[in-house]
Design a protein around this nucleic acid. Structure first.
Lengths: 256, 256
DNA sequence: CGGCGTGTTGATCGGTTTCAAGGAAGGTGG
DNA sequence: CCACCTTCCTTGAAACCGATCAACACGCCG
């Protein structure tokens, strides 16, 4: 397996929260009626802390393909995803790159060390973020043990998810990997209340980057799942799961 | 790639801290003169907190192959590794298993969720642990923001390491993987002050479980690194790095 | 000694990558 | 509206790498 050199891509434009605020629809957010509060960092917080949170939380929209953090900007980013999908990208200096994680609505963005790891976070789709400035979030963390504990729990959860994904990359066949990804997106969509057709947040190239396959292989496996009548596709990003049981079987994932 | 069924292994015996304490050399530990204090969780703590820590810290030895936590015992484990290597094992119900992480001296054990993930931690070598009971550690965490922050930083570090390893599993050839593992052990040994010959804490089977290769492949790659005069071996677990630069090159890791 | 667990070496097979070409979708300008 | 482009995706054929099956070497203990 000689490593594939994904072309050096032009670096995505940086979405800078400091400039053009009005244009970017930055505004106060009332946390109490937030769509993703349950299940997110903020879910565990009592109302008085939530009041405090409301004061420093900003709503921000980011377009698909834009950089959320990482790259050459040093400022650390802290945000809860309200809608959309974020990909965490590990880009090697030689141009090889890999998607090492996906974050869905209610997930937290900003738990990467700013150290030597070449991680950056990019918007896979258009995003709606609940955003905290570095100093604000640090202060919040310092003053509220509850938030600290919630953050720790979330990072431990991410760690578990990463280790689960290591199993996918190390031990599963191409077919099982593609099925696992479809299943994961299906389950996260279901959590968000969406049933029926599901929208794949990634392009074929991105799917390949995430599954550590070539995009040709991804394409072939999707075709095969279709020919087995396990899924159906419309266009490039719309999928329908025809036989959930068979998909679970094909993914070798636990039935949940 | 049809998945390999590693034989269902007889479950390792559980090292139970609650019984036979005297036989297991559980004793009070004076943290101030601890060999791994620098670089570990406790490194950042001021002396008065350290005093408090000393009161609840227990020293415990665990033999290679024994279970440290997980499996059927529900008690959560919190410990700093003083010497030895711990492997974090993801064992599937069907018998397939994978080593998803290694923890070295000064690393922390106990940051796995107790949730659905089938993770267990086992002693890869004989261990010397600095051990905290669940209630003690929880109380410690509740009262000391410094420890909370240190723990969070450590888990974030583990997350980064896991994501780095995902790159190894997804994108590297067998040769590069074996070289990466050797380099990792070499670097961690160097950190611990050991230079010259290095002791591989894993058997060939375990190396294969960690690298997601078959043990035959691991064996062949080691043979090839030897024939290229990059490493030399004595017996099965002793390695000498003859040409560090070539090893780094073969591993495709960053030169550090 | 013979049995057993572990590690090495050899030969073959199969899945994924690789290389190469063709096709569908979306945009632009005439 | 259609030719033309670019981008993204699909399909085909061949090469390659690691898995698999199989035999053997080594250390260890009874």
């Amino acid at each position: 397996m000689k490593c594939d050199e994904t072309d050096l891509r032009k670096p995505p434009k940086v979405a800078n929260p400091g400039s053009g605020r009005s244009a970017q629809a930055v505004m106060r957010l009332r946390c109490q009626q937030c769509a993703v509060r349950i299940g997110s960092l903020c879910g565990a917080l009592p109302n008085e802390v939530l009041q405090e949170l409301s004061r420093v939380a900003l709503r921000r929209r980011v377009r698909a393909g834009q950089l959320v953090s990482g790259g050459h900007q040093r400022a650390k980013v802290f945000a809860v995803i309200v809608s959309g999908v974020v990909k965490i990208v590990n880009a090697k200096p030689d141009g090889r790159q890999q998607i090492v994680g996906l974050q869905f609505p209610s997930d937290f963005v900003g738990a990467q060390s700013i150290g030597k790891a070449e991680l950056s976070t990019e918007a896979a789709t258009d995003l709606d973020l609940c955003w905290f400035s570095g100093p604000d979030f640090t202060a919040l963390l310092r003053d509220n043990t509850v938030i600290q504990q919630a953050l720790l729990a979330r990072v431990v959860g991410d760690l578990d998810a990463a280790r689960e994904w290591m199993f996918v990359l190390g031990r599963k066949s191409a077919q099982e990997r593609v099925a696992s990804l479809l299943l994961m997106v299906a389950r996260r969509s279901a959590e968000a209340g969406l049933t029926g057709k599901l929208t794949m947040p990634l392009s074929r190239t991105e799917m390949a980057d995430y599954l550590c396959l070539r995009l040709e292989t991804v394409s072939r496996q999707i075709a095969q799942l279709q020919s087995r009548s396990i899924i159906a596709t419309e266009g490039r990003r719309l999928f329908t799961v025809l036989d959930m049981e068979a998909l679970v079987h094909a993914s070798e994932c636990s039935p949940e």
